[in-house]
Every structure is written in C-alpha cells, then in structure tokens.
Amino acid sequence: MKRNAKFYAGFLLVALLIAGVGSFYASSHPDGLNYVAEQTGFIDQEKASATSDGPFAGYSTRGIDDDRLSGGVAGVVGSLTTLLVGGGLFWVLRRRRTHTTDPA
C-alpha cells in the first residue's frame, strides 16, 4: 500500500508540474480544429462560452498580471478540481471488498 501511495504521489506531482509550470511553454498556435475552422471559414460561428468571464476562464487567473503565475495557478486549480471530481466519482463507484475478513 505504501508503494502505491509513493507511485500516486509521484504521478500527481508530474501532473501538477505539467499544468503549473510546463503549460507556460505550450504553443499558442490554434489547435487542429480551430485552424481548420479558420481555413475553411467557419471560425466566425464561434460564440463565447457562458463561463467565459469566470475567474479561471482561458486558463488564466483573474487578478494575477504575471502571465506565468496566472496560467500556472489556473492549471493547478484545474488539475486539483479534476482530481477532486474524478477521484471522488471513482471512489464512490469502486467495488467494495465484501468477501474478505482481512481487517487491513
């Protein structure tokens, strides 16, 4: 179990580093779909999302001027929210061991 905890902690750390630090170095070019939409002429159909004035909209944190920090904080908040929602859902869904008498 200790071995699992160690692996999980390492995996989480890698994810948080990617979202919090690595994301700053991501390409700012449009992704495949947006590029195709520009090229073939349907990009103007896009409507702003209802959540586009949220505090972390567009992967930047409102109120933080520094780009690196603003994106990093948004990335970490998004990652931890995903962990909370996903982890919670999967923990509730999991098969509980009912056949074992092992107290561990």
């Binding site: 994810a15 991501a26 990335g75 929602v85 982890g87 869904l93």
Partner: peptide, 20 residues
Amino acid sequence: TAPMAGLVATFVFAGQMINF
C-alpha cells in the same frame, strides 16, 4: 484502481494544457 483513475483524469487535464 480508483485512486489511479482519479490521477489519470488529472494527468489528462494537465497534458491537454500542453499544445505542441
């Protein structure tokens, strides 16, 4: 596997932030 699944979702969220 439940904690692993939560972490995989987290990793995918993080990975999707990296546009190459």
